[in-house]
Simulated assay, not measured.
Amino acid sequence: MLDPRHLTQRVATHGPYIRVVTAEVKGSAPREVGAAMLVWLDGQEGTIGGGALEYEATQAARAMLNSDQRSKVTRHPLGPNLGQCCGGAVTLVSERIDAHFLSTLPNDLPFARRVEGSADQPLGMTRDLAMARGQGQPILARLEDGWWIEPVHQSQRALWIWGAGHVGRAIVDFLAPLPQFALTWVDTAESRFPDVIPDAVDHIPATDPARLAGHAPKDAEHLILTYSHALDLALCDALLTRGFVSAGLIGSATKWTRFQKRLAAVGHQPDQILRITCPIGDPRLGKHPQAIAIGIAAKLLNEKAEHASRGTLTA
C-alpha cells in the first residue's frame, strides 16, 4: 500500500531510496502482494520476506540507486538458486523514490504508473482508476502490461496514547509500524519521552494533559496510562465531556470501581462511564509492559477485523 506521507518523510531523512514491492505471487511465497521495503545506501526498512530473496533484492536496489534507472520489474523463482524451498515465484517492482517521484503524485490518488516496457495504460486499469476516484471503489494491487497500480494509504484510526511510561512506550513500539493507526502520544514533559520517537508518531508534551483532552478529535480512540491516578481520573472526566470513539484505562478492578464513583459524582451518567474499558489488555498475558501492549494491540486489531467483516467499520 502506497503511503505518500511516509515516502515523503523518508526522502527528507535519507534522500533518494528504492521502494521494492511484491507485485505478483505464484504458488507459495514469503509475503503477500503489496508487501514492501525501502532501501537506501546505508539502511533499509520493511520486509518482503524470504531471507535470500530479500538479500538479493536489497543488493539490486542499492545498485539501482547508483544508476540512472528509475523503475524495473524482476521475476524470482523461489527454488534452489535462492536457497529456498517455497516452490513458488515472486515478481518485484522496484522504483526510485525521490523529489521527482513525489512531484508526480496527483491530488486525486490513487494512480497508475509504467514500470516496465512501453505499452499504453491498460484499459481495465484506466477504468478501475475512474471508478476509484469517482465512486470510491477499492483498488486491487496488480501488475499488468508493465503498469503497476496499488491502493493508497489514506484513512487512519486516530489513537491517542496518554502516558510515556513503560507501558506507553511498549504500545507505541508495537503500533507505530502499523499504517492503519495515526498515533498521538501525550505526557506532561518532553523529558518523559524516549530519546528516539518513530517519525509517524506525533508526540506532545502538555503541562495539563486534561485540558488538551478537551480538544482531542471526537472520532479518536484513547488509551489512558499515565504515572498518576489523579491525572488518569482527570483525563477520563475530560474525555467523557468531550466525546470519543473508544477509551481504555489501565488499572485494577478496585481502581475502576473508585473511578466510577468519582466520575458519577461530577455528573457523568453510568452508561457513559461504562464506555470506558478498564482494565485494558489481556490479564491472562500478565503485567509485563510488553505483555500488556500485546493484549491491547491484539484487541485493537481484532476490533477492526470484526467490524470490517460485518461491514460496520466507520473509522
Rank of each mutant, 00 (worst) to 15 (best):
D3R: 02
R5Q: 04
L7T: 01
T8S: 07
Q9P: 08
R10S: 02
R10G: 01
V11N: 06
V11W: 07
H14N: 06
H14V: 05
Y17E: 00
R19E: 13
T22E: 01
A23L: 11
E24W: 03
E24Q: 15
A36P: 14
M37Q: 11
W40M: 00
L41Q: 05
D42P: 03
G43N: 07
I48V: 13
G49N: 09
G49T: 09
G50Y: 12
A52K: 12
L53N: 13
T58P: 03
Q59P: 02
Q59G: 06
Q69D: 08
Q69W: 03
R70E: 06
K72G: 04
V73G: 10
V73K: 08
T74S: 13
T74F: 11
H76N: 05
P77I: 03
N81P: 06
L82S: 13
G83R: 11
Q84D: 00
Q84C: 01
Q84R: 04
C85A: 07
G88S: 09
A89C: 10
V90L: 06
V90D: 05
R96S: 04
I97E: 09
H100M: 08
L109A: 14
F111G: 14
F111S: 15
A112R: 07
A112M: 10
R114N: 05
G117Y: 03
R127L: 15
R133V: 15
Q135D: 09
Q135A: 13
P138N: 03
E144Q: 09
D145V: 05
D145F: 04
W147Q: 12
I149Y: 12
V152K: 01
L159E: 11
I161Q: 12
G163V: 09
A164Y: 11
V167D: 14
A170K: 02
F181C: 06
L183M: 12
D187C: 01
D199F: 13
A200S: 13
A200L: 08
V201H: 11
D202I: 11
H203W: 15
H203E: 00
I204V: 14
P205E: 01
T207S: 15
T207I: 13
T207V: 14
D208L: 10
D208M: 10
D208C: 12
P209E: 10
L212Y: 04
L212Q: 07
G214R: 05
H215C: 06
K218C: 06
K218G: 14
A220L: 00
L223H: 04
I224G: 01
L225N: 02
Y227N: 14
A230G: 05
D232H: 10
L233K: 00
A234E: 08
L235R: 03
C236Q: 00
A238E: 05
G243D: 10
A247E: 08
A247P: 08
A253E: 15
W256M: 05
T257A: 14
T257D: 14
R262M: 07
A265V: 02
Q272E: 12
Q272N: 10
I276H: 02
P279R: 00
R284F: 05
K287S: 15
A291I: 02
A291H: 13
I292H: 15
I296G: 15
A298R: 08
N302F: 00
E303D: 06
R310S: 04
R310D: 04
L313A: 12
L313H: 09
